[in-house]
């Protein structure tokens, strides 16, 4: 029987190890299974703190889904770049900070820095969800500069940086940029 996606994601990331920028290519229908594999099967079981940058699904929706899947969210910290834009309910907490837009790339860097200081002592898994929504909201050159800085900072800290992408709906220049800034492509 083939292994489930969440287990495959966790096993593969463990094999790849820290300080490697991973472009995790997925299909829309496996989204929540992949997220579960990242934050629970891989993150929680390896005692990592997770910083989840979301520019596609509001943090409250992700939290709700993970809670429904009985995933422990106590070690997950969200940088929510989408709720403001959707004019959704904004409820900041110790685990969730909101940015006004996915185009405020410098502020994403600063919020990741903030959480990494807050969490100090644990290794970090940093999920960037997703390359598609960031590419929709940003110029490719700007996004490339941002990802280069963020991924290198995370690699220096021996973190696990994972960038989610839906390759079928990415523009060719965005795909090319991902190939340049990421060290490894994992397709599930």
């Amino acid at each position: 029987m083939p292994e489930e996606t969440h287990a495959v994601v966790a096993a593969k990331l463990k094999e790849i190890g820290p300080s490697v920028a991973v472009n995790l290519e997925l299909k829309v229908d496996s989204y929540f299974d992949v997220v579960r594999g990242l934050v629970d099967d891989f993150g929680a079981r390896n005692d990592l703190a997770c910083v989840y940058i979301t520019s596609s699904v509001p943090a409250s929706t992700l939290m709700g889904a993970l809670t429904a899947l009985e995933v422990d969210t106590s070690n997950i910290y969200f940088v929510d770049c989408i709720s403001h834009k959707l004019m959704g309910r904004i409820e900041s907490s110790e685990h969730v900070v909101h940015l006004e837009s996915p185009s405020m790339l410098e502020n994403i860097l600063l919020k990741v820095e903030y959480f990494s200081r807050l969490i100090s002592g644990k290794k970090l898994l940093v999920v960037i969800d997703s390359a598609n929504s960031l590419a929709t909201n940003n110029d490719t050159k700007m996004l490339s500069e941002f990802l280069t800085i963020l991924l290198n900072q995370l690699k220096m800290r021996e973190a696990y940086p994972v960038l989610l992408s839906l390759p079928d709906s990415l523009r060719p220049e965005a795909k090319e940029m991902l190939n340049l800034v990421c060290d490894y492509t994992l397709a599930v």
């Binding site: 410098e106 502020n107 600063l110 919020k111 903030y114 050159k141 700007m142 490339s144 500069e145």
Partner: peptide, 19 residues
């Protein structure tokens, strides 16, 4: 530089230029 004030103090990162 872009700055942000947090409980950990002022955090700083270069303003992106976009190539």
């Amino acid at each position: 530089y872009v700055i942000d004030f947090t409980p950990c103090g002022m955090l700083t990162t270069p303003l992106l230029k976009g190539g």
